[in-house]
Simulated assay, not measured.
Amino acid sequence: MDGVAAEPLIELDSVEKVFTVRRRAGRLRRTRHEVRAVDGLTFQVPRGEMVGYIGPNGAGKSTTIKMLTGILVPSGGRLRVAGIDPSRQRTRLARRIGVVFGQRTTLWWDLPLKDSYELVRRMYRVPAAVFRANLDRCIELLDLAPLLDVPVRQLSLGQRMRGDITAALLHDPDVLYLDEPTIGLDVVSKAKVRSFLREINAERGTTVLLTTHDLTDIEQLCRRVMVIDHGRLVFDGDLAGLRAAADGERTLVVDLAEELPPIEGVPGARTVKVEGPRQWLAFPAERSAAPLVTAIAARYPLVDLAVREPDIEALIAELYAGGGAARRDPGGADPAAPDPLRP
């Protein structure tokens, strides 16, 4: 799809969701307050893209997903998925999307896993050949063969998550919404799920919107990241842009031939840690490391070095706490100036 403008599969234009909350204000009196869970959200997701959609608890992520699936009706703005209004045409939309909602299973609790899949096939009227091909592919890549005869209630959280991902893909959806898809998985299983998601995205062009607190998922799966806070989009771009937007720092790890005092006099860098002959120097993320390396090599007995990128968790925390203007990658879909972060 490189070099070709992909059609937007998901479109939000100034979408809002406001909830009315009643609060006690005395013994008999209650007052009404509005809670703005999503506030003027605008973005597009082209067909075939894998996007990380992240933010703190209460930021509006789940509310957004529920509007995209038709569970909630927007209070304002325009929302389309595959050209469909989710809240008005939920049945039609259901055939185009797959959903995995964190710890809420879509499988039948007392049935063996394979019977749940048969029910999914009948619900979505999936042709037998398509169903068999999709199921066999998932069984192979997610190592489900030993689990097919096990009742869902006896599966571990990680096993059930793999089962839910399979159920969401049996009807060949255009878009897949994933909420914490690697929760409860060990390191090996996480790697399998990530590899599986990359493959179905590459082979089928399935659009994936991923919400997760495991930011390794984002780093390994998504070229694009959207950060939401207080219902507003505060960043939309790639990981490199996120590092620049949060004014993060990279680290130059220097191994010297001998133990020496902290390195000094290198413009644009500061020594933050010394441990024997190894020293750590911090410098702005947007700056090249080459001039620093040249300056250090000219003055110190250099043995080895490495550049470490800023930690993504720290960058996002900085975005949440910064209170600055919302950031958008220059290549983002929305050319309008973004709103400032809400306090």
Rank of each mutant, 00 (worst) to 15 (best):
L281H: 08
D115Y: 09
P330E: 11
A245E: 07
R224G: 12
L144S: 04
D238R: 01
D110P: 01
L185N: 06
G76D: 09
D214P: 03
E259I: 07
A240H: 13
R243I: 00
K61Q: 11
L147F: 14
T216W: 07
R224I: 14
G231S: 09
K61M: 13
L155H: 14
R224V: 06
V73H: 14
A269V: 10
T294A: 15
E219G: 11
E180A: 13
G55E: 00
V272G: 05
R270V: 15
P181D: 03
T294K: 13
D229Q: 09
T271R: 04
P74M: 02
A25Q: 14
L256V: 13
Q154T: 07
G322M: 03
V175H: 05
P46E: 02
Y320N: 11
A297P: 12
D2G: 03
K273A: 15
D174V: 01
A167N: 06
D304L: 00
I97Y: 08
I54F: 03
L9Y: 06
V293P: 04
V208D: 00
L28Y: 12
R36M: 01
T207L: 04
V193T: 04
G77E: 09
L178M: 01
W109T: 03
K114I: 14
L221R: 05
A325G: 15
G58K: 03
K190N: 01
T63V: 02
V303F: 00
G324L: 10
V51I: 15
D334C: 10
I97P: 06
G55P: 05
L170W: 09
A282D: 14
G332F: 04
A317I: 10
A59L: 06
A25T: 12
N57R: 00
D2N: 14
L12N: 02
V234N: 07
K17Q: 10
T64A: 05
M123Q: 13
Y117N: 12
G158Y: 09
A282F: 09
D238N: 14
L302K: 10
A269W: 05
S189R: 08
L170K: 12
A59N: 05
M67D: 00
A82N: 14
R29G: 13
G231M: 03
L148P: 12
E313H: 12
A129H: 09
V152C: 10
T63A: 08
R308G: 08
P112M: 11
F19E: 00
P330K: 04
L135N: 04
Q159G: 08
V38Q: 10
R198D: 08
I139R: 15
D214R: 01
A285Q: 13
P301R: 02
R278C: 06
A167C: 06
V35H: 13
A133T: 15
I10N: 10
L215H: 06
R224M: 13
L79C: 03
R78P: 02
A337Y: 02
K192D: 09
A246E: 06
A191V: 01
L135G: 04
L144Y: 06
I228V: 15
G76V: 10
R160S: 09
P46R: 08
L119N: 04
L157H: 02
G3K: 05
S195T: 11
G268N: 04
Q279W: 01
